[in-house]
Design a protein around this nucleic acid. Sequence first.
DNA 1: CTGGACCTTCCCCTGCAGGGGAAGGTCAAC
DNA 2: GTTGACCTTCCCCTGCAGGGGAAGGTCCAG
Lengths: 127, 127
Amino acid sequence: MRIGELAAATGTTTKTLRFYDAAGLVHPSTRSGAGYRDYDTHAIDRVRFILRGRTVGLTLAQIREILDLRDTGAAPCDHVQRTLDQQLTALEQQIAELTALRETINSLRRRNVESSTCQPETICRYL
Amino acid sequence: MRIGELAAATGTTTKTLRFYDAAGLVHPSTRSGAGYRDYDTHAIDRVRFILRGRTVGLTLAQIREILDLRDTGAAPCDHVQRTLDQQLTALEQQIAELTALRETINSLRRRNVESSTCQPETICRYL
DNA sequence: CTGGACCTTCCCCTGCAGGGGAAGGTCAAC
DNA sequence: GTTGACCTTCCCCTGCAGGGGAAGGTCCAG
């Protein structure tokens, strides 16, 4: 299968697939005489796995770890569990930070300032 | 006041201040004969304003809009209100997305898979 | 008059995940 | 045999907010 077919089959782009090749995530199984990448059908699952990982917010480095582990012949499920747990922790923290930021802005916003009394010198009382 | 003093007074770096100068956020009021940036004391308030804006998650572009408005002589409070409201909306959306992502990962994580039954071919049942 | 601290511009680098486009090779159909 | 779709590598660009460091100029104290 050539790169364009794989891109079509997985709903991504040839640019992305070349990038994944360079990043060591999905290599073509062979190259044609003219140097064209030739992928086997497993590549479809592999790309889809990467895309699923991306949609749950994993970085390519994290996905690569999983794939590398799998490529040793091991079932990477335990590692995936740990990665997902890390991701949950990171998400909790991001959510907490954004929520705190929201409260900060809300309280700024509630400081019922009379716009008419704003002085340009102070730049803005709201901030 | 030279750039190093301003950096010390505002707790930032000369690199950042030069960047803000180039970005049109805080210009020195004059340049010395040797080309040194010379800031007046208003610059301190201005830099602090930028830093406050940054801590509530505004981009430099948003902050610049506010400062540009202020520089026309207008009190930018109404614009700041709108900017903060936009920021709240953006935050709400980010929080919602992250929360949804968390739930997705949680449900993946709860799929009580027996690791021992994982097949390398499927890459990983968890994802 | 010299040393060290400070300043200048200039250019590249960071992280992350690719995108844009050029210059050139290849393949299949007509 | 040529047209058009596809492929290759190569290099730079994106957004965001600066950071690193080089090469050179300046200012002030001792």
